[in-house]
């Protein structure tokens, strides 16, 4: 049996994980790969743009007492044959979403998903920060080979990425996944790129792609489609294609060295001053004349 590439994508909430993951899936499918995308978020909206709004019951919704679940009940084929699955979870404020991910992933294994569908690539789109053990499931116990983190140059996004690095660092020695790299997303500020590069440098990691903020992405999303499908000729479609190709064809993995609390605080402070100086730069130059 061929080796399936199992990849998890993490990042702070609202940072563009689902958009990025879906575009990677679409790009891979377009290039002829058999792809499964599994949304690991109780909101269950990870695969929306791949399946054009088709209804998809979540894995956990279908596990009512005593009922036998079939793979076709919880999956639907989306753009270019990407198999879309949503783990699902409790309504907000109730139950335990973390344990839900655990249970959903176990169930998918029980259903022989990977043996039956025979994918080349499986992408797990995982909710936000690694707040508890349940959300770390996709990167533990050899379930995935590589993890990518989506981050902007916003400090809270970097903070979430650093937390993820801590989790990878903890689980990697016992067979957990390693880091494939950082996907820098939604970049606007002039300093954004150097800031993320600096963070990557300090944590011994690398940036696999830089994706500037773009209206094309928003517009495609509002149309319920990926950029690859809605605007296949756009510059961003090529960016996603290049990212997908990199991830699958030239994977590099490292065990990141997360910053500790003081290091992260000092680093943030240093950047805070630097950004301010850059903004005030013009005044200072005049003063030096």
């Amino acid at each position: 049996m061929k080796k399936i590439q199992q990849i998890a994508i993490y990042g702070k909430g609202g940072i563009g994980k689902s958009t990025t993951t879906s575009n990677i899936s679409a790009a891979l499918a377009e290039a002829g790969y058999r792809v499964i995308q599994i949304g690991c978020d109780p909101k269950s909206d990870s695969t929306n743009t791949l399946r054009g709004g088709n209804f998809l019951p979540t894995v956990l919704d279908s596990t009512r007492d005593g009922e036998k679940v079939r793979l076709e009940d919880i999956s639907v084929l989306g753009f270019k044959g990407v198999l879309c699955i949503e783990a699902g979870g409790p309504v907000p404020g109730v139950g335990c979403a973390g344990r839900g991910i655990n249970a959903a992933v176990s169930l998918l294994h029980d259903l022989n998903l990977f043996e039956d569908f025979k994918p080349d690539v499986v992408l797990y789109d995982v909710l936000g920060d690694v707040v508890c053990g349940g959300f770390a499931v996709p990167l533990r116990d050899g379930l995935t080979d590589r993890v990518y983190v989506v981050s902007s140059s916003d400090f809270m996004a970097i903070y979430a990425a650093n937390n993820l690095f801590k989790a990878i660092n903890k689980y990697a020695p016992s067979g957990g996944a390693q880091l494939g790299g950082i996907i820098a997303n939604g970049l606007v500020a002039t300093y954004a790129r150097i800031l993320i590069d600096d963070f990557a440098g300090r944590t011994g990691t690398n940036v696999v792609e830089y994706i500037p903020r773009s209206l094309v992405v928003s517009q495609s999303e509002l149309h319920g489609k990926t950029v690859i499908e809605a605007n296949p000729n756009a510059e961003h479609a090529d960016l996603y294609r290049r990212l997908a190709k990199n991830i699958i064809e030239q994977p590099q993995t490292v065990i990141p060295k997360p910053l500790n609390v003081t290091e992260l605080r000092d680093w943030a402070r240093e950047w805070g001053d630097r950004i301010l100086q850059e903004e005030e730069g013009i005044v200072r130059e005049k003063a030096s004349i």
């Binding site: 956990l60 007492d65 409790p90 109730v94 139950g95």
Partner: peptide, 10 residues
């Protein structure tokens, strides 16, 4: 059961 612990047990 496990499902109740995930989805809430009310």
């Amino acid at each position: 059961n496990e499902r109740d612990s995930i989805m809430g047990s009310d």
